[in-house]
Structures are given as structure tokens and as C-alpha cells.
């Protein structure tokens, strides 16, 4: 088990290294732009450009720059924001927490909704199956930012008194915070719920045809016992795994959702930084979220392997 974890982690290292090179290279590939953006204006004297270059260490060879950047990043220093002149890490962390909460809520919503429709689709078959699969195709076709826009339109125009679009910080009012994230989480969850639903359907169908379900029926057990202890408990493992692997999609989607609902998370931070061409921030966010996604995938793999020892025969 430990060996498997170590191997899995070791395999991730070269990918992480590649990710860091891309994150670094992406922003340095810009012809001259980097310095101008750092200086915060488009018309500066050659003198200013030269000083800025020296300050940022841009006069050194590119691989040396990368080395320094990577070393700093590993020790938790992602550079300084061009716009605010504050360390990127200190600005990113509180926003990351907000995005993590939103993502978690969306993930759980997607799991609950998708597992329910998938289960209904597999168990009831016939018309229900058709209805669920049709709904899934439609949900997949409605991008999350369109859903979010329509939700904002609906609630903002017709139920303006609810005032759910004002983000409430968790520290100030935990319950209000969760309520304020409810609609954003739902808009973020719907697309992902399709994947969960389809996988639940497949998993339940697969489990239903297993001999042990037939044995359970031959035992004369109640339908709800068979459903809970035999079908759902066995189908849930692959479904939770798949939901965990949707983190990348959720993180990507959070950029749009946070912008639409004005939630001060990492996504909105990225959007603002892109508009301001705040390259160190973009770099930092790209690096941090890719690392999180990669580690999450490793975690899911390990968790699955643990359960799998119990699940797999022979």
C-alpha cells in the first residue's frame, strides 16, 4: 500500500515539473510585455524598463530565472502582484478558501443530484431512463455561465428581495455564507452532475447484474435493504471516484461562476488579474490549481485502491 502511494506520487513529480515549466514559460514568452505590465504602463522610458528588468531578475539567463522562480514557489513564495505590490500567496490563500468552499458545495450538490437521477434511471428504466438521459443531454448543453446568468436574471428580476447575490463571508455569518453560495454552487454543479449521473447509471446497472444481488433477492430481503446494502453501497465507490475527478472542471467553472455572482474567490481573482495583466498572479493561480488537481487525482487513486482491495475478487 505504502509502496503504491510512493510510486503514484513519484509519477506525479515529472508532471508537476512540466506544469511548472508551462506556467513559468507562458508568462515569460511575452515579447517585452512582461516588463511593461510590471511597470504598470505602456509608455515608459528605457531607463525604467532596465531597472524593472533588473529588479525582476529578467536580465539573467532564462533557466536561471526559472530555477529561482521554482525555488521560491516551493518555499511558498509566488512573487509579488504587479497591481497591489503584495505577495501573491497572501492574496491567494483567503480566495482559495472561498473557492474551495464553493467547489466542495458544488461537488456535493452534483453528487447528490447526479447519483439520484442516475439511480432512478438505472432502477426504474423505461420512461424514467429516457427522461433522465434527455435531461442529462440538455444539462450538458447548457454551459454553467448560461445557467448562472439565467438564475441571476430570474432571481434578480423577479425575486429581488431575497438578495442572495451578496456574498457573505463565512467568518461574519456562517449560515448566511452557505446560503449566499447556494445558487452559485447549483449553477456550477449541474454540468458536473451529468457525469455523475451517467456513471451512477452505469455502475448501478453493472452492480444489478451481479450474482450477489440475485442472492439478496433469493434471501427474501426487503427491497429497501437490497437497494441500500447491496446496490448503492457497491455502486457508490466508482461514483465518488468520478466525482473527485471532476475537480478540474469545477475549478475551471468557478472562474465564470465567481465572476457572475461576484464571489471573491480564486476564479474572480484570476479574472481580475487577466484584465489587469497581473502576470505573477496568473502564474501562481495556474500553478496552484494544477497542483491541487494533480494531488486530488492521486488521492482519488489511492482511496480507490484501498477500497478496491475489498471489492476486487481473487
Amino acid at each position: 500500500m505504502l509502496r503504491m502511494i510512493l510510486v503514484r506520487l513519484a509519477l506525479t513529480v515529472p508532471i508537476l515539473l512540466g506544469v511548472s515549466i508551462v506556467a513559468f514559460g507562458l508568462m515569460r514568452a511575452l515579447p517585452g510585455d512582461f516588463v511593461l505590465a510590471a511597470a504598470g504602463t505602456n509608455t515608459v522610458s528605457q531607463e525604467v524598463i532596465d531597472t524593472t528588468r533588473r529588479q525582476l531578475g529578467l536580465d539573467r539567463p532564462i533557466w536561471e530565472q526559472y530555477g529561482i522562480w521554482l525555488q521560491n514557489a516551493l518555499s511558498g513564495d509566488l512573487g509579488t502582484s504587479f497591481a497591489t505590490k503584495k505577495p501573491v500567496v497572501s492574496e491567494l490563500l483567503p480566495r482559495l478558501a472561498v473557492t474551495a468552499e464553493l467547489t466542495l458545495m458544488a461537488g456535493l450538490t452534483a453528487l447528490a443530484f447526479g447519483a439520484t437521477t442516475g439511480l432512478a434511471s438505472a432502477r426504474l428504466r423505461g420512461r424514467t431512463d429516457w427522461a433522465v438521459r434527455g435531461l442529462n443531454s440538455l444539462l450538458l448543453a447548457v454551459p454553467n455561465f448560461v445557467i448562472a446568468t439565467l438564475i441571476v436574471l430570474l432571481f434578480g428580476l423577479y425575486f429581488p428581495t431575497i438578495g442572495i447575490f451578496n456574498y457573505v463571508p463565512f467568518a461574519k455569518d456562517p449560515l448566511g455564507n452557505i446560503v449566499s453560495l447556494l445558487l452559485p454552487a447549483i449553477s456550477l454543479a449541474l454540468t458536473v452532475s451529468v457525469t455523475v449521473s451517467e456513471n451512477t447509471r452505469a455502475a448501478v446497472l453493472e452492480v444489478s447484474s451481479q450474482d450477489y444481488v440475485m442472492v439478496a433477492r433469493a434471501k427474501g430481503l426487503l427491497a429497501r435493504t437490497i437497494l441500500g446494502n447491496y446496490l448503492v453501497r457497491n455502486a457508490l465507490t466508482p461514483v465518488i471516484t468520478v466525482t473527485g475527478l471532476q475537480l478540474a472542471a469545477l475549478l475551471g467553472g468557478s472562474i465564470l461562476i465567481e465572476t457572475i455572482f461576484t464571489i471573491p474567490g480564486m476564479g474572480q481573482y484570476l479574472f481580475d488579474s487577466v484584465t489587469r495583466r497581473d502576470y505573477p498572479v496568473i502564474q501562481g493561480i495556474v500553478l496552484v490549481s494544477s497542483t491541487i488537481v494533480l494531488l486530488m487525482n492521486v488521492l482519488v487513486d489511492i482511496a480507490y485502491a484501498r477500497v478496491d482491495a475489498r471489492v476486487s475478487y481473487e
Binding site: 508551462v22 506556467a23 508568462m27 478540474a248 472542471a249 475549478l251 475551471g252 472562474i255 487577466v274 490549481s289
Partner: peptide, 22 residues
Amino acid sequence: MRLLDVVFAFPVFLLAIAVVAA
């Protein structure tokens, strides 16, 4: 495949934003 894994490791939309921004 290892090279593609690197690109694959990024959340698609995040990478798209970063590349367009760059």
C-alpha cells in the same frame, strides 16, 4: 504521452484563460 500528461494536468478552462491572457 508524458508530454501530453503535462497539458492534461491543467484544468482546461484555466489553461485556456492563461494562454489567451498571455
